[in-house]
Design a protein around this nucleic acid. Sequence first.
DNA 1: AATCCGGGGGC
DNA 2: GCCCCAGGATT
Length: 342
Amino acid sequence: MSATGSIASKLLDWYDRNARRLPWRVPPGGGEADPYRVWLSEVMLQQTTTAAVAPYFAAFTERWPTIEALAAAPEEDVMAAWAGLGYYSRARNLVKCARQVAGMGGFPKNEAELRKLPGLGDYTAAAVAAIAFGQRAVVVDANVERVVARLFAIDEPLPGARKAIRDKADAITPDKRAGDFAQAMMDLGATTCSVRDPQCLLCPLSAECEGRAKGDPARLPVKAGKKAKPLRQGTAFWIERDAKVWLVRRPGKGMLGGMRALPDDGWAASGDGSGDAPIGGGWRAGGVVRHGFSHFDLELGLAIYAGERFAELGEGEWWPIADIEEAGLPTLFAKAARLAQA
DNA sequence: AATCCGGGGGC
DNA sequence: GCCCCAGGATT
C-alpha cells in the first residue's frame, strides 16, 4: 500500500474506534446522513465551536425539522433564533439557501453545484458533498490545516500555505468513505492533534508524521502576525415606557446586520459613535458594556431616557421588557439590556 | 490578497 | 488577556 493510502486507512480505522459522538453526526457504519442536518450543522459550525453549536442545532431541528419547514419560516424568526451565535450573515444566507433548495426539490448532490448555494464556500460545499452524499471531496477546515501542516511539516505561514496544504489533503483523501475521512481528520485535529498540545503518543499517524519527526510539531502551522484591535466607543439608548423598551431593526448588511437592537449612535469598526441621541429630552448615564468583536473592541455607554418626547421616534417597535429574551438581541445588546434592568 | 463579520471556551 | 474555532462574502 502507498504511504498516502496507508494514512487514510489508519485514520479510518482510528475513526471507527474513536469517533466523537455529536448531535448532527451519524456514527461510522450508522447509515444514511440527512443532507438537511448535515448542511445546517456545517453552516452553524463555521468559525464556531461544537459546544456553542449544540443547543442551537437542537433548537433549530426541533422547530424546523426539514428544509421545507425552514424555507417556509419568516426570515425574522430565523434571525431571532440565531441570536447569540454570531456571524449573522449566515442566518440570512441560511434562509435564502433553504428557499432555493426547497424550490429545487432538494440539495444538489455534487460539490460544484453545492458551491453555488448562498453561504456555502469551498469548505462547506466539500463537507456536505462528502458527508451527506458520500462524494469524494477535499474537505479543508482549520483542523485539517493543522493536521496536514504537521503531517507534512509545512513551514510556510498561513494563509500563504493554503494551496500546499490543500494539495497534500487531496493526496491523502481516499475515494471511499470520503465523509468519514473528513470527519476523522477533524476529530483528530479537535482532540489528539490539538493546537497547543499534540498528543503524539495517542495519534494513529505518528509514524508518518514529518512534523513529529522534526520535533516540536506544536509550532505548526505557522501563522502570520495579527493586527492590533482598535478600541471604539459608542452609545446605546434605552427608551422605556409602560414596561416596554424601544427596539429597532439594524440594516441588512454590516455589523449585526438584520438583527433587532437598541438604538445607537452609529459606532462602527471604523470609528466611534457620534454620541447623538435618537430623540431630544433628558438622558442619564446607565453604565458601560465592554464587548469584543473579531476586529475591534467596543465600549458601549448606555444612556437611559428620562424624557417624554416619544413622538419623535422613527421606525421601531415597543417590546415588552418581560419578554426581552425572545427579542433575539445579539449578545452586545443583550448585555446592555441586562445592565439597564440591573 | 485583505478586510469585514460574533461570540464563547480554553488556557 | 490572548488565541482559537467544522469560513464566507466582499472589495
